[in-house]
Every structure is written in C-alpha cells, then in structure tokens.
Simulated assay, not measured.
Amino acid sequence: MKNLRPLMMAVALATASQLALPQTVQFPGGKATFDGKCAVCHQAGGKGMDGLAPPLVEYPGKYADSKEGRAQLGHTVLYGMFGPIKVKDKTYNFKMPGFGALTDAEIADVLNYVVFDVNAQHGSAKPFDAAEIQALRASTLDASAVYKQRDAVIRGLGL
C-alpha cells in the first residue's frame, strides 16, 4: 500500500491538471462570432439568461441531427424569432433579431460552435457548411414563421 501512494498522488495531480485546462474549441471562428453577437443575451457558453434568452446547451445538438431541426437552427439565426418558448419547463419570452447580414460561412461557423462545442450530445449530426446556409436563405420567412416552425420541430423531436 505504501508503494501505491506516489502512484495515486501522480494520478490525482494529472487528473486535476486536466480539469484545469480549457476545453478545446473546434470552431474558433464560430465562437468569436457567438461571443460578439450572441453571448450578450445567450451568455458565454450558451448558458442562457432566465426569462429572456434560452440556453443553447442541449436543444441545438438534438436539432442538428434532423433535416427539419437543421433548417430551424439556420432559419432562427437568419431571420430571428420572437414569442414565448419553453425549454425544460422554463419559459423565455425572447425577441431574437435576425443575423442575415452575416455571411453564409459565418452562420455555419456559429451554428457549428453551438452544436459541437457548446452541446455535449449531437448524435450523428454533420457540421453545417456555407452551401447549406445559402440554401436556407432562399426561404422567405419572417420571425413569426420561424416561431411557428419551431413548434413542429419540437413536437417531431419529442422535446
């Protein structure tokens, strides 16, 4: 037992040092855009703001695994969304502006940051790319249509 003590201490120190290291960001461009445009309401790391902006740490990862969910994510960023929504039994009454002025690549990057860096679970979702966002841009939606579309996506995913 006495001989195991140095080994146990080394394992404890290695574990502690790993916990102290910042998590690697796969989509740094998306993080920069998120930090500059989205974090003011959704907060750092997408944790949300009670009563105002919903957290982004769970649902987007689930959305990104289906065609309808991916469209919802893209349309929300492009056109905005307003109205009361519920996430995990909490209600948020948010008026999210559209960010259609961003390039297709910037929107793809920010969605990838949210889905793959902020969300721990994203199923077998593939990363967004500029061509996918360009195709979503062809829709002529407004924020109220995006809001209605969200209900169908939520029901379809069982959330």
Score class of each variant (00 low, 15 high):
83 G>W: 03
149 Q>G: 08
39 A>N: 09
48 G>K: 03
115 V>F: 07
93 N>M: 10
82 F>W: 11
83 G>Y: 06
112 N>H: 07
71 A>F: 14
82 F>P: 02
137 R>G: 02
105 A>T: 04
67 K>P: 07
6 P>R: 01
145 A>C: 06
92 Y>M: 02
94 F>W: 13
6 P>N: 05
3 N>H: 11
132 E>S: 05
143 A>C: 06
127 P>C: 11
141 L>Y: 10
86 K>N: 13
68 E>V: 14
50 D>V: 07
26 Q>F: 03
83 G>E: 09
94 F>R: 08
26 Q>W: 04
41 C>S: 07
37 K>T: 15
5 R>F: 10
17 S>F: 00
7 L>M: 04
42 H>L: 01
65 D>P: 00
56 L>H: 08
23 Q>R: 13
115 V>W: 00
61 G>R: 04
88 K>H: 01
151 D>H: 14
119 N>Y: 00
40 V>G: 14
44 A>E: 09
111 L>C: 04
149 Q>R: 03
85 I>M: 14
59 Y>I: 13
68 E>K: 06
38 C>L: 09
14 A>Q: 01
62 K>G: 02
124 S>H: 12
102 L>S: 02
69 G>V: 06
1 M>Q: 13
156 G>C: 08
39 A>Y: 11
23 Q>D: 13
140 T>F: 03
95 K>T: 12
12 A>L: 13
142 D>T: 10
33 T>I: 14
18 Q>R: 15
103 T>L: 12
39 A>V: 07
33 T>V: 15
131 A>N: 04
77 V>H: 03
83 G>M: 05
5 R>S: 04
73 L>T: 06
69 G>W: 02
113 Y>D: 00
